[in-house]
């Protein structure tokens, strides 16, 4: 008595225009009276995009706009032709999201069960689910831990698990909000390599500037505005100048 969609993965047929990227049109956001983001007009099509800025500058809010976790109080966010305000389910299938704290993202007691969770939501049949879970676990070095309790994993393994749980859903784009902040150097490097190897478009919010090596485009957010939009070299330089003046 489970009700499943006959097909599994999000069909690209739902999508108006898969290659269009993420567009922000006149986007602003406020929490109550407090303006957190304002006047953002961008089109994000590059495969590797970084977002940097001071604490509280609005980066996480910006990131959450991209998959409809936050709907802007002004303007529109359009993902491949889908409006996050009206087509949020389809948007979330297109855009995966990885958070900073893996503990808050792992919702099932064991590794394989957790990875299967998103697929279950999408109505993927059990056989296909098991196969895709196994494949992802193998790819990210968790194959030996399929039946392990999630809370016994190391911090680095937990973050890999959280990422696997998103990638198994095969999103076309993935947003990461400070994915390496809680990790030691070795695990941070592993996550950085994993991100570098993804075929998806990625948008990474980070305070760890070396994560941006090889990126195509970096946005510097300050006071809720994008104050610099450039390749990593000039963008990081601008960010340092900005911070030096504080």
């Amino acid at each position: 008595m489970r009700f499943r969609r006959p097909g599994a993965a999000p069909a690209d047929a739902d999508v108006a225009d898969p290659g269009r990227g993420i567009e922000l049109r006149g986007v602003g956001h406020r929490y109550g009276d407090r303006v957190v983001l304002a006047g953002i007009d961008l089109r994000l099509t590059e495969p590797r995009i970084g977002v940097i800025g001071a604490n509280g500058s609005g980066k996480s809010t910006f990131a959450r706009l991209l998959n409809g976790l936050v709907v802007p109080t002004g303007g529109q966010v359009i993902v491949d032709g889908l409006d996050t305000r009206t087509q949020v389910r389809a948007v979330r299938r297109r855009v995966g999201f990885v958070f900073q704290d893996p503990d808050a993202q792992i919702v099932h007691p064991t590794v394989a069960e957790d990875v299967g969770y998103g697929l279950e939501n999408q109505g993927v049949p059990p056989d296909e689910r098991a196969a895709r879970v196994a494949e992802v676990l193998a790819r990210y070095g968790l194959a030996g831990h399929a039946d392990h309790p999630a809370h016994l994993l190391s911090g680095g393994q937990k973050q890999l698990l959280a990422i696997a749980g998103v990638l198994v859903m095969r999103p076309a784009r993935v947003v990461f909000d400070e994915p390496t902040t809680l990790l030691d150097l070795v695990n941070a490097r592993r996550v950085a390599e994993l991100i570098a190897g993804l075929e998806q478009q990625v948008v990474v919010v980070t305070h760890q500037l070396d994560l941006l090596d090889g990126f195509d485009r970096v946005l510097v957010v300050d006071g809720g505005r994008v104050v610099e939009d450039a390749p990593p070299g000039p963008a990081v330089a601008a960010y340092r100048t900005l911070m030096a003046g504080r």
């Binding site: 969609r5 299938r93 999201f97 958070f99 808050a104 969770y117 998103g118």
Partner: peptide, 15 residues
């Protein structure tokens, strides 16, 4: 938030 991001409310589609 994490549940939402992984499609927890995709359920009505199923229904």
């Amino acid at each position: 938030e994490a549940l939402d991001a992984r499609g927890a409310d995709d359920v009505p589609v199923r229904r």
